[in-house]
Structures are given as structure tokens and as C-alpha cells.
Design a protein around this nucleic acid. Structure first.
Length: 267
DNA sequence: CAATGATCCTGTCCGC
DNA sequence: TGCGGACAGGATCATT
């Protein structure tokens, strides 16, 4: 499931393709996987990419025709470069049409992903409230401590809250909590200063390590060339039976999501 | 306002 | 062999 490192990897790949090409339009093959917001919005094509950026798990492609394409991959979304695309295959939900018959295919088994083409001036208000970027200097112990104050929600749920920190998902939260020796079930307000500092440090560390190897591929995630990331080879607890020290991993449901942790190493 | 739960969706895996 | 059910889960919306 794409989180910050995977989204960034895809973004970089898409940017490298689009920078040297012209977009001639879009096609949608499934429900609302792709839509114009508002529906009557009708920018002119061809158009070229002006800027590609990421905010949390959202990709934002600003075009030179007054429109922006906002992409969220959710769990199973992929963007794949097709130099010679054929008829849309089974899970292809939409397509970014490029000159010379090329395309970027939006493939999404579970159909939760979304691509929205909107007026560029609407981008900010189109996005939901998003908290700080975990790789920016705004994300620090002081910020996290402030957000944690009085919250009795489990720390894991708080770290997954995109309006507090934008970009973390289930895998990296499980992993960073293991590194910090903090159990995911701990109430946010019970964390000591030392643990808060550790969480900040380990969040940055795990994200940077994953970014360096192209993200984590546990199920469907692929980069733009349909290659897997490598960070799944470095996971300590997520979907593991044993932690690196050989202790048995527990899996508890928090906020409806699997939370892998080692009860011996994390408390 | 905070916290919880249902919802969306399909491929995969497990037990019988 | 085949079938039913559980599971995977980010974000949104409704409810408590």
C-alpha cells in the first residue's frame, strides 16, 4: 500500500516521463476512478507538465493549461508507463494519453484510487486537511508533543491521522514504533518526552531508508516501470512471525487495521 | 470536538 | 474440487 516513500517514488518516475512529453487527454474506464471536478471543467489539450509535487500521499501534477491532476493511489493503485499501450487490461481504470500513442496507465485492482482533474486554483481547497510533512523540519518533538497532549487515542492511530502527519501508513507506523520500542496500543498522552523524541527520529529514519530503496512492495505496489521496491526485505515486524530477536510478533486490531508489534521489545 | 464504526472493492488464502 | 468467509486497508461519512 503506497505510503510516502512509494508515492514519492512514483511521483519521481511520472515526472521524468511527463517532462519530455505532451499530454493529449484522459480516458476513464471505470466509475469514478478518473473525473473532472467540477464535471463541466474542460481545459484545453495538448498540455505540458509544469510541476510535479507531493503532499502527504497525494500527487499533484500542475499542467500549463490551468489544470492540475491530483492522484491518490490508495491501496492498490499503480501508474505504469506504456510506450505501446493496447486495449485497456482488466484492472486498468483510466489512462493518461500522451503524444505518439504512449500512455500512463492507471491500474487499480480494488478501485479505491482516484485521479481528479481540477482547476489549478482549486488544488488547496480540493485536498483534505493535511498535517506536517514528516520529512520537513516542522515535524519535530515539539510539534508531536503538542498534538499528543490530552489524546487518549492509541499512538498508532494518531500517527496514521493524515491531518496530523501527512504521508504515514500502516507499514511504516508499525515499523517505526518497533524501532522506538513503543507498543502501538499505548495511549498518546502516556508517552514520555524521550519516547516522543525517539518516534520523531525513527519516523524520519525509516522513511529515508525506504525512499533510498524505492519503497516497500508487499502486495501490488510497483514503481512507474512496474518494478518492486526493496524495503520489504528490511521490515522488522510488519506481517512477520518473529521480530529480529526471535520473539513472537503479535497482531492486534487498532482502528480496524492490523498492528504488528513485539510485546517483548515494545512496551 | 473526539472517537468509533461502516463503507467502498476484489484478489488471495484458509478450512471444510 | 469448490465454496464460503475472513482478510488486506486509506479515506470518508455517519453516528455516538
Amino acid at each position: 500500500m503506497p505510503e510516502l516513500p512509494e508515492v514519492q517514488t512514483v511521483l519521481d518516475g511520472v515526472e521524468s516521463i511527463l517532462l519530455s512529453r505532451t499530454i493529449i487527454g484522459f480516458e476513464n474506464y471505470y466509475g469514478q476512478s478518473f473525473s473532472k471536478v467540477p464535471p463541466e471543467f474542460s481545459p484545453s489539450f495538448p498540455a505540458r507538465l509544469k510541476e510535479a509535487k507531493r503532499r502527504g500521499k497525494y500527487m499533484i501534477f500542475t499542467l500549463d493549461n490551468g489544470s492540475s491532476l491530483i492522484v491518490h493511489l490508495r491501496m492498490t493503485g499503480k501508474l505504469v508507463y506504456e510506450p505501446k499501450p493496447e486495449a485497456p487490461h482488466r484492472h486498468e481504470r483510466a489512462r493518461i494519453l500522451l503524444e505518439n500513442g504512449e500512455a500512463l496507465s492507471f491500474i487499480d485492482i480494488r478501485t479505491f484510487g482516484k485521479m481528479h482533474l481540477i482547476p489549478t486554483e482549486d488544488v488547496i481547497k480540493h485536498l483534505p486537511p493535511l498535517g506536517v510533512e514528516p520529512l520537513s523540519k516542522e515535524f519535530n518533538a515539539k510539534y508531536l508533543k503538542e498534538k499528543i497532549k490530552g489524546k487518549k487515542t492509541p499512538i498508532k492511530n494518531l500517527l496514521l491521522d493524515q491531518s496530523i502527519i501527512a504521508g504515514l501508513g500502516n507499514i511504516y507506523v508499525c515499523e517505526l514504533l518497533y524501532r522506538s520500542s513503543v507498543a502501538p496500543t499505548r495511549t498518546a498522552k502516556s508517552l514520555k518526552d524521550k519516547e516522543i523524541k525517539s518516534i520523531v527520529k525513527d519516523t524520519v529514519e525509516v522513511l529515508k531508508e525506504a525512499l533510498a530503496v524505492g519503497g516497500t512492495s508487499v502486495s501490488d505496489y510497483r514503481n512507474i516501470d512496474d518494478k518492486t521496491g526493496e524495503f520489504q526485505n528490511f521490515l522488522n515486524v510488519y506481517q512477520k512471525k518473529n521480530c529480529p530477536k526471535g520473539h513472537e510478533i503479535e497482531n492486534v486490531k487498532l482502528g480496524g487495521r492490523s498492528s504488528f508489534f513485539c510485546p517483548k521489545c515494545q512496551s
